[in-house]
Structure formats: C-alpha cells, structure tokens
C-alpha cells in the first residue's frame, strides 16, 4: 500500500509538472517533427503521405487506442501464462 501511494504521488507530480510546463512555451511535438522532419525538409526530402493515412478526424485516436488495447491484452495474456498466480489458486483449492 505504501509503495502504491508513492507511485500515485509520482504520477500526480508528473502530471502537474507537465501541465504547468505545457502552459508555457512547450509544444510537445515529437522529435520526428523537431529533428527528423526538420533535417529532411532542409535536405529537400520532406516526408510523404503514408500509404494508409489514418490522420482523418478521430481515426488516429481510434487506431492508437485499439493498438493499446490489443497490445495490453496480449501482454496480459502472456504475463499470466508466464507468471500464474499459483499461491492464490493453491489457497483456494485447499479451502475447498
């Protein structure tokens, strides 16, 4: 419980810190824009449209959320296969 509270505290500090900074001049662009794209454009080779363009309305959010769900579910499935909660199962079976 103590460790969980520490984690919550760290996350809250992180959120507040990031929010305060974002109200100033930070743009939070990815380094692909601030570095990769910048140098590519200077060299006359700007990025082209992706073959499957998801940047239309909320499609981008949908695909990223879907990717997070699928990735998280897959990780969780294999996590339980590799690290099964044996102790709890043993405890339940002996009680029964």
């Amino acid at each position: 419980m103590k460790r969980l509270l520490i984690v919550f505290a760290v996350v809250i500090v992180f959120v507040i810190g990031a929010a305060l900074l974002s109200s100033h001049k930070a743009e939070w662009s990815g380094v692909d824009d601030s570095v990769v794209k910048k140098f590519a454009e200077q060299a006359g080779r700007p990025p082209s449209e992706p073959y499957i363009n998801i940047a239309q309305g909320d499609m981008e959010l949908f695909f990223f959320l879907l990717a997070g769900i699928v990735g998280g579910f897959t990780a969780g499935y294999y996590y339980r296969e590799l690290f099964p909660p044996n102790q709890k199962l043993v405890g339940h079976s002996t009680n029964v």
Binding site: S29, G30, D32, V36, R45, P50
Partner: peptide
C-alpha cells in the same frame, strides 16, 4: 507524436 521512426518518403 512519433520519434525515432523515419517517416515514409524521407
């Protein structure tokens, strides 16, 4: 946002 990924066409 993206990062180290080199985008299409570069």
């Amino acid at each position: 946002v993206y990062a180290m990924h080199i985008s299409e066409g570069i």
